[in-house]
Amino acid sequence: MFCRVLGVVLCSTALTVYFASHSIGTVVVTTLACSLLLQLAYFASVLFLIWRDSRVGQRAEHFGSCKEVGSEPPDLDEVNESADLLQRNQMRAISLLLP
């Protein structure tokens, strides 16, 4: 799906630039620049998702460690499961970055 959208965006950019300038050199440079910007945006969005996921995990740990009067301490199994889930999500996001 991502490759199809990338191909459509790059082809439409190339056609638009060619009809506007009638220059193959300008088409190549503009298409490469567009490709670079799309890759940077994709990379930044993956980093943002990793950052947001780590903040959610920190927030969950914070609320789990809050002590109210008459409440019981958090179950260690639940804490370990949350940490395992966070680690799996981070590894999944990192695997998206690697070829």
Rank of each mutant, 00 (worst) to 15 (best):
S71M: 05
I24S: 10
T26C: 02
S45H: 06
E61L: 15
L6H: 05
I50N: 01
T13L: 07
L10W: 05
Y18S: 06
L10K: 06
L47V: 00
Q58M: 09
M1E: 07
S12F: 09
A60N: 11
P73K: 10
I94L: 14
V8F: 04
T30R: 02
H22G: 01
S65Q: 14
T26D: 13
F2I: 10
L86D: 11
V28E: 09
A93W: 13
M91V: 08
V27Q: 09
V29C: 03
Y42M: 01
F63C: 06
D77V: 09
E78C: 03
F19R: 11
S23R: 15
T30I: 09
F2A: 07
V9D: 08
A20E: 12
A93H: 13
R55E: 14
L76V: 12
S12A: 04
T26S: 09
V8E: 12
L86N: 11
E72G: 00
A33Q: 02
S82T: 12
Q87Y: 09
Q39R: 08
L38H: 00
R4T: 03
S71G: 11
L85N: 11
P99R: 10
V9E: 14
L37S: 10
L10V: 04
L38T: 06
V29S: 10
S95M: 09
L98C: 04
Q39V: 04
C11M: 10
L86P: 04
Q39K: 02
R52C: 01
S82A: 15
V69M: 04
E72S: 11
S45L: 09
F2Q: 10
A93P: 00
S35C: 14
Q39Y: 08
Q58F: 05
W51I: 00
A41W: 02
G7K: 03
C11W: 02
L36N: 02
L96N: 05
C11Y: 03
D77S: 11
R88V: 09
L96Y: 08
G70E: 03
S82F: 10
E72A: 11
E81H: 12
D84A: 15
G7N: 11
P74A: 14
N89V: 04
C34T: 14
R88K: 14
V17S: 08
P74T: 07
G64I: 02
T16D: 11
Y18P: 04
A83S: 13
S35A: 15
H62Y: 14
L97C: 06
F19I: 05
C3E: 08
